[in-house]
Amino acid sequence: MQKYRCVPSLYGHSAEPMPSIEEIEKHYRESYYQDPTGQYSKAYDRPELDYFDDRANVGLDFSAAHGVTKGNAIDLGCGEGFFLKSAQRRGFNVFGVDHSLVGIERQNRDLIDSDPGHFVAGDIGSRRHFEGVAFDLVYCKNVIEHVIDPDSIMTRIASYLSPRGLAIIEVPNDFSKLHSTIFGDASKEELPIFVPPVHLHYFTTKTLPELGRRNGFSVIDCFGDYPIDHLLMEEAFNYYKDRKLGSSAHSLRRKFFRYACGVDVDARLALFRSIFMAGLGRDICIVVRR
C-alpha cells in the first residue's frame, strides 16, 4: 500500500506523492457507488431526504441572492442527484455529470427519465460535456479535493458558465484552526481527515477563495455549513474515538439545517457566511463568477 505524506501546498495541504490516474481510476472503480458495502445508502429515511434538500436549498439561496434563480443548472459530480432534485423543484433545467450514474439512477431515476440527454457518465476534467449549452449555475460539491490538478477543474467550470452565470464550489474544510485546537501536535498523517487517495488536497477558508481568484474568477460570496467538528472538542461527543456517536452527531447536523432553513432568508445567509468567516464549517463554499 502506498505511503502518503501530508505536505504544505498551494491548496493548503496535499498528499505526496500524487497517485497516478490509473490508481485513482482503480480506486473509484472498486469503491464508488457500485460497491454495495460503500458509504451510500440504498434507501434514505425522511429526515435524511429533508437534510439533502435543506443543504441544497442553502446553496440555491446563495445563488438567488446573486440573481440566479432559473435557467440551466449543472452538477459536476452529481452523485445521487439530490442537489439537482432540489434545483429542479425551484425551476431550474437540470444537467448532471459523474464518473458513474449508478447513484442518481438508484435515488432519482425520474430526473434521468424526464430528460435522458441531460445526464452523462464521464470524466469531469478531460472534456466539456453538453457542447452548445451555457449554464446559469454550475455546482461542484466535494470534487476538486479528489483530483490531481484542481486548477484544471476551475478552467473546466469556467467553460460551462454563461456570461452572468455563477458557480458554487464546495470542499471539506480540513486542517483548519479548529482542527489544530482539537488535534494538537499530532502529525497530519495520523489524523482521520487525511485520507489519500480519496482526498488529495486539503483546502482552507484562505486557500479556496485564492483558487478562484487565481483562475480568473471574482469571488462574490463565501459560506460554510454546520461546524460538526466542534463536537470533537468534548470527549463525550467525540465521534472519531467512539464511532457509535456518529449517528447522533449527524442527527444534530440535520436538525441544525432544518432549523436554519426555517428562519428568514437574510438571517440564514448571514449565519452561513459567518460560519465561513470564523474558519468553521465541515464543508466550505465559494460563489464565483467569471
Rank of each mutant, 00 (worst) to 15 (best):
H230S: 12
E234S: 02
D151S: 05
P47Y: 02
F203Y: 05
I286P: 01
S86G: 12
L178N: 06
D174V: 04
A167Y: 02
F82I: 06
P227I: 14
T69W: 08
K244Q: 15
D35Y: 07
S14R: 08
V219N: 08
C140M: 14
E48Q: 08
G279L: 01
V288S: 07
V133L: 13
G91I: 14
V68L: 12
A73L: 10
C285V: 02
K3W: 03
M277H: 13
C6F: 01
F175A: 02
L245D: 10
R156M: 13
S9Q: 11
S31G: 05
V58H: 14
D53R: 15
Q34D: 13
R282Y: 02
S31A: 10
I157Y: 06
G279K: 07
V97P: 10
E170D: 14
P19T: 10
S126K: 09
A260C: 09
G212V: 00
S20C: 03
L10K: 15
A267M: 12
L211C: 00
R128A: 12
F272K: 05
H129Y: 10
R290T: 12
D149T: 13
R268V: 06
D264F: 08
A43F: 10
C222I: 00
F237K: 11
S14G: 03
D229E: 11
K26T: 01
S20K: 01
K26A: 04
N72R: 09
Y160E: 10
A158S: 14
A134L: 09
I112G: 06
N173Q: 01
N93A: 09
D53K: 11
C222A: 07
A236L: 11
K70N: 15
D50L: 14
T204R: 07
E48Y: 04
I193M: 13
D98E: 06
A64S: 13
Y33N: 03
G38H: 00
I21W: 15
V171H: 04
S247C: 07
G71P: 11
G184F: 04
H146G: 13
S41F: 03
I74V: 15
S14H: 04
T207F: 05
P163N: 05
H66C: 08
A43C: 02
V287E: 05
S218P: 03
E22W: 12
P116W: 00
S162D: 09
I153S: 07
V143G: 08
D123V: 09
K85D: 13
L60M: 15
E23K: 05
S187K: 13
Y226Q: 13
M1Q: 13
L10R: 12
R29E: 15
D229V: 03
V97C: 09
F183R: 12
I169Y: 01
R282E: 00
P116T: 02
H201A: 07
T204H: 03
S180H: 00
F223C: 03
F223M: 05
M277I: 06
C261A: 12
K26F: 01
S114V: 14
S31I: 00
K70C: 14
S86E: 13
G224Q: 03
Y51Q: 11
S152H: 09
V171E: 00
A278G: 04
G103Y: 00
G96K: 07
G96I: 13
E190L: 04
F194K: 10
G216N: 07
